[in-house]
């Protein structure tokens, strides 16, 4: 199947997509900029195209009883773009991620993953998305290799053994293949979780606090593996983290949430400048203390 690249109307709503555009590795930082003049890759079948945005969410709202967890969040991640979703505890990050993944139904709003609209096209969308979280355990009664092979099947991979071997090698944990899930350290579990999430080389990888509670060495391996993956495959990344150094290393764009709303969206430098802080950690602390406006105090916040 040959490929050809064509210009498309940026206003068109492409929902019939599959496959991925590995060439579009660098994504702009704004929705409008991204769609302007963006190219779609279309196969000769004429029915498969890859949309410009790996992820597009508009006006997401979620209310749990008296708490408005997410309040009108707009979020776009371009193909190959690396975005951090940041904010203090209770800001609505995980609820937003769960809505993006179709696990929680939003009260209102629209989610499209790789051109597939949720919830109607959830299954097709999830073939193009990987998810891992630092807090997810591995099932106790499975060996790592069995666990990964099961997920390779769930992702519909023809060569599940090859995919698992390749995934373990990518993160340099081949020796864990025969270990039982409950024998692993939290760092090893995280690495296996990320291998699981990337078995099918998804165009979009969503990670919820992937390095939480990991020692610096393992966290470094996780970050290096992710950088390698994104650089080689042009994988778009949406990651939540409380580690601002990690964010600055991994992501070209940060989106700050506070009380369920987007309060900042831009490159780390832009966001730091907007808030008048010395670094991202200063912005984080400012938001955690309830501030949403630029820091007026001249003292360094970090």
């Amino acid at each position: 199947m040959s490929e050809r690249v064509v210009d498309v109307d940026p206003a068109s709503d492409s929902t019939a997509s599959a496959g991925r555009d590995r060439g579009a590795a660098t994504g702009p930082s704004r929705v409008g900029e991204f769609f302007a003049g963006e190219r779609h890759l279309i196969w000769d079948t004429g029915v498969m195209s890859v949309p410009a945005a790996a992820l597009s969410a508009r006006a997401l709202v979620k209310q749990f009883k008296r708490v408005r967890a997410v309040d009108g969040v707009d979020l776009t991640v371009g193909a190959g773009e690396r975005v951090a979703l940041l904010g203090p505890n209770g800001a609505g990050k995980t609820t937003t991620l769960m809505m993006l993944l179709g696990v929680i139904t939003p009260d209102s709003g629209v989610v499209e993953l790789v051109g597939r609209r949720l919830p109607a096209q959830r299954s097709a969308a999830m073939e193009q998305v990987g998810f891992a979280a630092g807090y997810l355990p591995l099932p106790e009664r499975l060996r790592v290799r069995e666990f990964l092979e099961l997920f390779a099947d769930l992702y519909g991979l023809a060569d599940r053994r090859g995919a698992v071997a390749g995934g373990l090698a990518r993160f340099r944990i081949e020796e864990l293949g025969d270990a039982m899930g409950n024998e692993l350290s939290s760092g090893q579990r995280t690495l296996v979780g990320i291998v699981k999430a990337t078995l099918h080389n998804p165009p979009l990888l969503i990670l919820d606090e992937p390095t939480a509670s990991l020692d610096p060495d393992v966290a470094h391996r996780v970050r290096s593996g992710l950088e390698e993956l994104c650089a080689e495959d042009g994988t778009a990344l949406l990651v939540t983290s409380h580690n601002m150094q990690e964010v600055e290393r991994l992501c070209s764009r940060v989106v700050f949430l506070a009380a369920g709303r987007v309060v900042a969206d831009g490159s780390p430098d832009e966001v730091v400048a907007k808030f008048g802080s010395s670094d991202l950690e200063g912005v984080f602390l400012h938001l955690a203390e309830g501030g949403t406006e630029p820091i007026t105090d001249a003292r360094p916040v970090s």
């Binding site: 179709g102 299954s123 997810l136 769930l154 992702y155």
Partner: peptide, 14 residues
């Protein structure tokens, strides 16, 4: 019991 529900729900499995 094995807290595997979320793992399954974020796959294409229907």
């Amino acid at each position: 019991w094995s807290r595997n529900l979320l793992n399954l729900m974020v796959t294409p499995l229907t």
